[in-house]
Amino acid sequence: MQESSKRVVVGVDGTSESQIALRWAVEAARTGGLAVRVVRAYLNQASEWPATAEGSIPEPPVDQYQAELDAAVEFVRDRLGYQAGSGWLVHAGPVDAILTEAADAQMVVVGTKFDSKLTAAVLGSVASTVTAKAPCPVVVVRGEARNGPILVGMDGSADSEDAVAFAFEQAARSDAPLTVAYCWQPQERHDAPITEMRALLQDWLVENIGTYADKYPGVAVRTRIIEGRPATALAELTDDTSLLVVGSRGRGGVTGLLLGSVSQSLLRHSRCPVAVVRRQVAAD
C-alpha cells in the first residue's frame, strides 16, 4: 500500500451524490498516481430511542453499510489496482471519520446535491464542516465530472496563493488549461482611469503567478481581470469549468472555525466541483 500521505480520502454513504464523488476521487487519484481511501461512517441513532419493550431497539444495517463500502473499494481497485484501494467502516459521525482520515491525506473528496432549493440556501453540514476543518484541500463535488479548464481565484492573500499552487498542480496532472482570475469592483473615483487600472492589475497578476508558471511550464495558463463581486463573478464562469479552486478565508475570516464568505457562497452556487484550500497555521 502506498504511504498514507499519497492518497485521496472520499466519503460514501449510499447516495448518488457520494457515488459521483467516488468517481471524481478515482479520476483525481489516477492522474496524480495516488491511492484512494474510502470511508463509510454510520451512527446507530436508533439506540437513543426509548425502547417500548425489551430488545425492541432496531440495530443499524451494518451488513448493508459493509456491502456499500466493499462495492466502493472494488470500484477503486478495478480502476487503479488492488493496492490503490482501501476502506474503513466505522461507527462514528461522518465528519469525525473523514477528518480522522484527512489528517495525513493529500486531498478529501465529498459529494453534495447539485441543484436543490435546500443547497441553494444551506450547504450540507458534512461538506461545510469538513471543508472548514480539514488539514488538506477539500473538493466538494456537485454534478458529474466534465472536461474544461480549471479556474482559480486570486486576491493576493496567503490563502489564495495556496489555491493557485494547488490549481497549477491539478492542471499539470490532468493536462487541463488553467485560468487565474482576479475580481475587482471599480469605484466611481480612481486615482487612475479604469483602463489603466485594469492594465496595472493584469501586470500584477501575471507577475504574481510567474513562479508557478515557471514550475509548471506545460500548463496552458491565461489570466483574467473580472469586474464584480468575487463570489458572483467566479460562479458565473463555472458552466464550462471542470474545477473551481479558492482559498478558504481570503482577506478575512476566523482561523479554523469558519470559511470565508466567498468560499461559502461558491460552495453553494458553483456549477462545477469546488476545491477549497485552507492554509494551516499554528493556531488551528
Results as ranks from 00 to 15, higher is better:
residue 19 Q to S: 14
residue 170 Q to E: 15
residue 81 G to D: 10
residue 212 Y to K: 14
residue 33 G to D: 04
residue 50 P to T: 06
residue 123 L to I: 06
residue 251 R to F: 10
residue 182 Y to V: 04
residue 44 N to M: 10
residue 165 A to G: 11
residue 228 G to K: 07
residue 242 S to G: 06
residue 106 Q to I: 02
residue 261 S to R: 00
residue 37 R to H: 08
residue 50 P to F: 03
residue 7 R to K: 13
residue 276 V to Q: 04
residue 248 S to F: 02
residue 284 D to V: 11
residue 110 V to G: 02
residue 79 R to S: 12
residue 29 A to M: 07
residue 244 L to V: 06
residue 219 V to T: 09
residue 163 A to K: 04
residue 106 Q to R: 14
residue 8 V to P: 01
residue 223 T to P: 15
residue 122 V to L: 14
residue 106 Q to L: 06
residue 53 A to M: 13
residue 87 G to Y: 10
residue 37 R to D: 01
residue 23 R to H: 13
residue 271 R to M: 03
residue 228 G to T: 07
residue 22 L to T: 07
residue 101 E to D: 10
residue 44 N to C: 11
residue 190 H to R: 05
residue 184 W to F: 07
residue 41 A to P: 04
residue 233 A to T: 02
residue 222 R to V: 13
residue 170 Q to V: 05
residue 251 R to M: 10
residue 84 A to D: 14
residue 271 R to P: 03
residue 252 G to N: 15
residue 42 Y to V: 07
residue 144 E to F: 08
residue 125 S to F: 12
residue 71 A to S: 09
residue 21 A to S: 06
residue 138 V to T: 14
residue 162 D to M: 12
residue 258 L to F: 14
residue 35 A to Y: 10
residue 166 F to A: 15
residue 54 E to Q: 10
residue 226 I to Q: 15
residue 80 L to N: 12
residue 277 V to A: 12
residue 158 A to Y: 04
residue 59 E to G: 09
residue 48 E to Q: 12
residue 279 R to A: 12
residue 32 G to C: 15
residue 42 Y to S: 07
residue 23 R to I: 05
residue 1 M to H: 00
residue 18 S to A: 11
residue 59 E to M: 13
residue 97 A to C: 09
residue 205 L to A: 00
residue 182 Y to G: 06
residue 82 Y to P: 06
residue 146 R to I: 01
residue 117 K to R: 14
residue 261 S to Q: 01
residue 165 A to Q: 13
residue 169 E to P: 04
residue 221 V to R: 05
residue 178 L to E: 12
residue 14 G to E: 08
residue 57 I to H: 02
residue 91 H to M: 12
residue 141 V to S: 10
residue 218 G to P: 05
residue 38 V to P: 03
residue 1 M to N: 03
residue 255 T to N: 14
residue 85 G to E: 01
residue 267 L to F: 02
residue 44 N to K: 08
residue 65 Y to M: 11
residue 8 V to A: 01
residue 25 A to T: 03
residue 69 L to M: 09
residue 93 G to M: 08
residue 109 V to A: 10
residue 272 C to Y: 06
residue 99 L to W: 02
residue 196 E to W: 14
residue 164 V to G: 11
residue 262 V to N: 01
residue 66 Q to H: 15
residue 260 G to Y: 11
residue 275 A to K: 00
residue 275 A to C: 03
residue 265 S to F: 07
residue 279 R to D: 09
residue 114 F to Q: 08
residue 8 V to H: 03
residue 261 S to D: 02
residue 5 S to D: 12
residue 227 E to R: 13
residue 140 V to A: 13
residue 225 I to W: 09
residue 252 G to V: 01
residue 261 S to F: 10
residue 108 V to P: 01
residue 30 R to E: 03
residue 134 A to I: 00
residue 172 A to S: 13
residue 67 A to C: 02
residue 26 V to L: 05
residue 261 S to I: 00
residue 85 G to P: 04
residue 31 T to Q: 14
residue 31 T to H: 13
residue 49 W to H: 04
residue 86 S to P: 01
residue 179 T to D: 09
residue 274 V to R: 08
residue 49 W to G: 09
residue 109 V to D: 00
residue 127 A to P: 11
residue 183 C to H: 13
residue 258 L to Q: 05
residue 225 I to K: 07
residue 206 V to Q: 13
residue 206 V to P: 06
residue 193 P to T: 02
residue 108 V to L: 03
residue 225 I to L: 10
residue 280 Q to H: 14
residue 258 L to A: 13
residue 68 E to D: 15
residue 215 K to L: 13
